[in-house]
Nucleic acid binder design. Structure first.
Lengths: 344, 344
DNA sequence: CTGAAAGCGCTTACAG
DNA sequence: CTGAAAGCGCTTACAG
């Protein structure tokens, strides 16, 4: 913002010989303006290079035309997990087509997500908010629901399902299907590296996994279930852990390609044959799963769409007061070499 | 923004028995407020749960406290090139520590970057702008310079160097050093896949490459220089092209890991031994270069820092009117197996 | 150190 | 279909 002597509605009004009210009305496409007046004003606006001041509009109209996006606090996620850039791309695209701007949360160390949300709202900077992940006992969901501020969630709400707009995959089914598939190809000891406890998506996937084991008449073995952070370290660490199990699992589901990729390296180095000794399946279907030496079977969750439709939902929440709407984005299990060989 | 009956300066003023002016002054930390008054007002603000309306502040003060970031129009970039998410992460971090919010350009198909810039400025939504890449004849740089609007550039300005704040690697030197290194390990025919013509970074790297060839007494062979889009297709296509050259090059520089990764697959499938027959070096040092079957030598350009310091520069441009400042972010050539074997 | 007043550039009932 | 007036919630010379 610079002290350029902006041309204002007043200038336009003067030159078009109408009142500022009228200028304002043609700006906002008010229906009851005569075609003649509209044209004249439009022409003057063009001649003067006039462009409405968004800030002034916001103050007067109580609408900002911008959407706030809360990025995960832990910046590692932003870096490693391809979900975030992809979903963000979907959000940007969606926002563009709905004529919204996107304001990103500045992730400061000290500030909790809730504080960021509150600041966005209290400073009146956004019309609505997108939460990019769903935690168990998420205080942001709680808060936003309680003050009835328009928001949408990527993921499944931990509570208040009837009030929270959200877009998600059916992660329960995805894990169920994947586990069943591994069982069908003859695997008996199926391990799972499931992501962070405390994330709804982790809960859902574990549930689906357990259910599938049960229906396949396979025992659930707690020692085959891993949860934790999703960085490189973890991939290696768990890989080594699994290597040391006796008997080793003959299948492994990992909820992110990157980790799967890392773990795969450990197994290969140790002379484990994939998929013969160990079938591996993962999530996100990122570039890594395709480019891997042994291409990885992976669940494509359509991150872009998750982002894109979260905007759609949010726009409806803002404009029509929609609440509790739920959108399921289909996933797809892309089968590749890491699960396609014969079992030993 | 919701029609919550916000508490305003007026409410605070009333309860604290001061004028709104005074409240405003304690909000903005005006020095000449008595400690006593300050404390009383602060207490009332806290009691009332008051939080200043950012929009109103903006309108009155002509400062928005937000930075506009222009993302590349072609969304493929955002997806594939790890530079963008990384640099964006740096920007977000930098913005947070400088107390700015980040507004993202909504990349619509029809709109040029220049139009987005103009809209940001004319609607008074941002105090400054970050351009995430530098094109030859970039009209945004031209425009922003001409109206003297604060901005900073990631990359090298194509012109008006004395006016444009920018942060960049020394891409000339990086390409020069990498080429020289390949020559030093005995390579005689060094090919280059250089990225898009029209990007300043591509120009710089080609220059450095040529200079190094010359100083190493190697001929510059036009048929060994490739430019083009950076998607998967390109990697495969050029890989096949190179395979069909006679004689084949014995070294290849590629300005992105992903493409290098793709090309590598082509070569491996064709039975080319890396690095024996063909040494490969690339840029960005992404996760891919490490995880590759044959780990790739790659230039780490420190994308995060590029983003982070672009904010630093921009803040100085806004607050101190700084112009033409230049910041060089060091790069690092990370040597790995793809260049470390012996030549044939 | 503090207050009264004007103003930032729009929008929106209200009235005609 | 259009205008006059008040107001959105702050900030900032100006004056004291």
């Amino acid at each position: 913002m610079i002290k350029t002597n902006q041309t204002t509605v007043k200038d336009v009004a003067l030159k078009a010989k109408v009142s500022p009210s009228t200028v304002s009305r043609v700006i906002s496409n008010h229906p009851k303006i005569s075609e003649e007046t509209r044209k004249r004003v439009l022409k003057v606006m063009d001649d003067l290079g006039y462009y409405p001041n968004a800030i002034a509009r916001s103050l007067a109209s109580k609408k900002t035309g911008t959407l706030g996006v809360i990025l995960p606090n832990r910046s590692e996620d932003l870096l490693l997990n391809p979900f975030f850039p992809e979903a963000l791309r979907g959000i940007i695209k969606g926002a563009a087509s709905a004529s919204y701007d996107v304001l990103l949360s500045s992730s400061t160390e000290g500030k909790s997500e809730l504080e960021i949300v509150k600041t966005f709202i209290r400073s009146s900077k956004v019309d609505g908010i997108i939460l990019m992940s769903s935690k168990v006992n998420d205080e942001c969901q709680e808060y936003l629901s309680s003050i009835e501020f328009p928001f949408s969630l990527i993921g499944s709400p931990y509570d208040h399902k009837e009030k929270v707009n959200h877009v998600d995959n059916d992660n329960y089914m995805a894990a169920y299907e994947l586990t069943t598939y591994l069982s069908m190809i003859g695997r008996k000891r199926i391990a799972l590296i499931a992501g962070e406890v405390g994330q709804m998506v982790t809960m859902k996937r574990i549930e689906g996994y357990k259910k599938a084991l049960q229906e396949s008449n396979l025992p659930f073995d707690e020692t085959l279930l891993y949860t934790g952070k999703f960085d490189e370290e973890t991939g290696y660490t768990y890989g080594v852990d699994i290597l040391n199990l006796t008997p080793m699992p003959d299948a492994l589901i990992i909820t992110d390609d990157l980790i799967a990729f890392g773990a795969t390296k450990v197994f290969k180095t140790a002379g484990i044959s994939i998929p013969k000794d160990l079938a591996i399946a993962s999530f996100n279907n990122s570039i890594l799963s395709r480019y891997s030496d042994i291409p990885l079977t992976s669940v494509d969750i359509n991150s872009f769409d998750l982002g894109y439709y979260s905007v759609d939902l949010l726009a409806k929440a803002i404009n029509e007061g929609v609440k509790g709407r739920k959108l399921i984005i289909p996933y797809e299990i892309v089968k590749r070499q890491s699960t396609e060989g014969e079992a030993k």
